[in-house]
């Protein structure tokens, strides 16, 4: 087990370097930072541009990209104080990124906890009697709601609850001009975005949990438990749900990385200042110094969650040996 973790962690270093290098080249070519610089500083002299290229290690050619990448990596590893400033506004990258990460974690955390618990409970409920009323209803709704893309549900919920009925605010963390911390206001602003994200999670997990539980139900140990005379509820709780959770853990670990993708859309609809809004904003500005730290952190977290998914499998199911 330990050897497996160490080996995977060691493999992660070249993987991260390879992926981030590819991403770096793609960002360099996609959003040419020199062009962005010129766009944001019109009437800049040729000399100034050269200075800027030198200061930010923007060398040309393929060899130049490699050199630039390692110089960039060097400054990146040294910590947020050494990171380059954004092209637009010469602002500190980390301050804004940290703020966005916290906002996103709050949204994603609430939505995931709600979505996973509700989804798993509903899935369990549906699997207790396959083909029963609860099963049919859950199946039907999970199917339809799962097919609705988040931008559709987001826009529709916003239209109904924020615009037509006016019960909830239509976006942001606080109303404009609000100062200081206000928990109630914050919760009110988070209801709609959390719902949009949670809907997706609930339907996905309900369907998955149902399928997983149905697989477990036909296992020998469930029959043994029934033969021992345990009640249906105890069987479900002790033998069913616990074993059905093994594949679920993997799915959850893999999904947490994917969650960010769904969040970008939700954050956009509700003007929520999270990492999605951060990414989109700097995509439109073509801001390499702001995009790279975000992408690198994202890549690392995806790889870590991937590893956790593999580990959770081995940890929860003792029959699986990692080597």
């Amino acid at each position: 087990m330990l050897r497996f973790i160490v080996r995977r962690l060691l493999w992660m270093v070249p993987t991260i370097i390879f992926i981030t290098f590819t991403v770096y080249v793609m960002v360099r070519i996609g959003w040419n930072p020199v062009e962005s610089y010129k766009r944001n500083n019109t009437r800049v002299t040729e000399e100034k541009i050269q200075q800027y290229k030198e200061a930010n290690f923007l060398y040309d050619g393929f060899g130049g990209y490699i050199r630039s990448y390692f110089k960039w990596l060097h400054s990146f590893i040294q910590g947020p104080d050494e990171w380059q400033r954004t092209i637009k506004g010469r602002a500190d990258v980390w301050t804004e990124l940290r703020y966005s990460i916290f906002n996103t974690l709050r949204l994603a955390g609430t939505a995931s906890v709600l979505g996973i618990t509700i989804g798993i409970s509903i899935g369990t409920l549906a699997a207790r009697k396959p083909g029963g009323i609860a099963d049919t209803i859950v199946n039907f709704f999970a199917y339809f709601i799962g097919a609705i893309p988040p931008f559709v549900s987001g826009v529709v919920l916003q239209l109904i609850f924020a615009i037509e009925l006016g019960w909830l605010p239509d976006g942001r963390v606080y109303p404009p001009g609000n100062q200081g911390f206000d928990l109630w206001l914050m919760i009110k602003h988070m209801i709609l975005p959390v719902t949009v994200v949670a809907i997706q999670t609930i339907s996905a997990y309900a369907r998955f949990m149902r399928a997983s539980l149905l697989d477990v139900r036909s296992m020998d140990y469930v029959r043994t438990a029934r033969a021992k005379g345990l009640g249906e509820w105890t069987i479900l709780r002790r033998h069913g749900v616990r074993n059905a959770m093994i594949p679920m853990a993997t799915v959850i670990a893999l999904d947490l990385g994917q969650l960010i993708g769904g969040l970008i859309i939700t954050e956009r609809i509700f003007n929520y200042p999270g990492v999605g809004a951060y990414y989109i904003k700097h995509v439109f500005n073509g801001d390499l110094p702001a995009l790279m730290p975000f992408l690198v952190l994202l890549i690392i977290s995806v790889l870590v969650f991937n590893l956790l998914a593999d580990l959770s499998y081995a940890k929860l199911d003792p029959r699986i040996k990692l080597g």
Binding site: V27, G30, L259, I260, L295, L298, V302, F305
Partner: peptide, 22 residues
């Protein structure tokens, strides 16, 4: 594995921008 775990929208925007410049 890695690609499927990666948020597709982030990757899609990145690829779109990159491919459009080549």
């Amino acid at each position: 594995d890695i690609f499927i775990a990666f948020p597709f929208l982030v990757a899609a925007i990145l690829f779109r921008q990159f491919l459009g410049e080549v």
